[in-house]
Design a protein around this nucleic acid. Structure first.
Lengths: 174, 174
DNA sequence: TGCAGATTGTCTAAATTTTATACACCTTTG
DNA sequence: CAAAGGTGTATAAAATTTAGACAATCTGCA
C-alpha cells in the first residue's frame, strides 16, 4: 500500500497531524509530522522527503495565510525539487492564486476528504516524477522562443544564446 | 502610454467589455473585444495577441466556470505561447486552482480594480516576455533531474536521454 | 561478512555539432 | 529608392557527443 517514501506534514494542530498521519500512512512509508514550520528546513536536511504538506497559519489570531506563503517560498528556495502542497482552512481565491504562483503544486482546503487528498497527492507526485528528456525540453523551449520572436530566427537565436546556424540545425531535426 | 500590442478580451457582458476596453486602452495599442468564446481561436489566427483576458461563464444560468476552463484548455493547446488571464465573478478556490493548474497566468475576480488589473497584467507580460537562454534552461533541467535521481548520475543520464559522459561534461561546466 | 551487481571516474577514437565568418538574395521601412 | 535587417546556405576549425572500455568503489542482501 505504501507507494511512496517520506512525506513531511506541517500543521500546528495536533489532532490534525494525527488525522493526517493516519490517512497518509496508506500511501507513504514514512509520515514525518512537524508542528512548527521552523522545523521544516532542518528536517529536509535529514529526510529525503518526496512531498511536503504545509498548513498556512501558525501564529494564533493570524489567519491570512501570509506565514504559509513565506515558508513556502523559503522551502522552494532551498529545495526547488520537492513539491509542496498547501492545506488551509482559511482559504480564499487570492491566497490560492498567490500560493500556486509561488510554486505550490496544489492547494487544498480544510476540511478535506481523505480519498480526495490522497488522489491529489498522487497526481502531484506523478506529474513531478517524470523527467523529460533533454532533447524534448530543448525542442519545446526553442519552439516557444521562436514563437515569441514571431518567427524571427535571428532574434530567437540571439535570445537563446546560440548561433543562428545552430538554431537552424536544431529546427531541421524536427 | 500603450506599452503593449494587442490584447484579446472575452466576456459576454457588453458593459464589462466597454469598461475593460476603456481601462486596457491605456496599456495596449489594440483591445480586441469578443463576446463569444467561440470567436477566440479564429481571432487568434488573424491577430498577434500578446495576452488573452478570459471570462469563465458564458451560458446563462451556468456559473461554475467549467466553460471557461474548457476554452482555456483549447486556447492553450493551440497557442501555448499566449498567456491567458482568467477573470470571473463567481470565483471559488477550487476554480482558481484548476484554472492555474490548467495553465492560466493569473486569476482575477470581479469586480476588479483597474489599477490592480493593469499591474497584474504587466507582471504577467513581464514574466512571460523573457526568453531564457538555452544553456541556462538546460542547466536548471539537469539539476532537477540529478536531484530527482538522488544524485545517481547514471540514472539521470538515462532519463535525460544523454550519455553519462555528456552529463559529466555539462555538469563540469558549472 | 562477503559477493554480485551497480556506479563512478576516467580514457580513447570516431562521429557529430557548434562556431565564426562569409556571401547572395529577399523584405521592410523611412 | 536605398539602407538596414533577415534568410538560406556554405566552409573550415573548434568543441562536444557518442560508444565502448577499464579499474576502483559502493550497495543491497543472503
Amino acid at each position: 500500500m505504501t507507494e511512496y517514501g517520506t512525506i513531511l506534514v506541517v500543521d500546528d494542530n495536533a489532532s490534525i497531524l494525527t488525522a493526517l498521519r493516519y490517512c497518509l500512512g496508506e500511501m507513504f512509508a514514512r509520515v514525518v509530522c512537524l508542528s512548527r514550520p521552523e522545523e521544516v528546513l532542518p528536517a529536509l536536511q535529514r529526510e529525503e522527503a518526496e512531498l511536503i504538506l504545509l498548513d498556512m497559519n501558525f501564529s494564533l489570531g493570524i489567519n491570512d495565510g501570509r506565514e504559509g506563503l513565506i515558508w513556502l517560498q523559503a522551502i522552494r528556495k532551498q529545495h526547488p525539487d520537492v513539491p509542496v502542497v498547501l492545506l488551509t482552512a482559511y482559504a480564499d481565491v487570492q491566497l490560492a492564486v498567490r500560493g500556486l504562483k509561488s510554486g505550490a503544486s496544489d492547494f487544498i482546503t480544510k476540511p478535506w476528504d481523505n480519498e480526495d487528498l490522497l488522489h491529489k497527492l498522487r497526481d502531484v507526485l506523478k506529474a513531478h516524477r517524470r523527467i523529460v528528456p533533454l532533447e524534448q525540453m530543448e525542442a519545446e523551449h526553442i519552439r516557444r522562443a521562436i514563437d515569441q520572436c514571431h518567427g524571427n530566427m535571428t532574434e530567437a537565436a540571439k535570445q537563446l544564446g546560440v548561433t543562428r546556424q545552430t538554431l537552424y540545425n536544431k529546427v531541421k531535426k524536427w
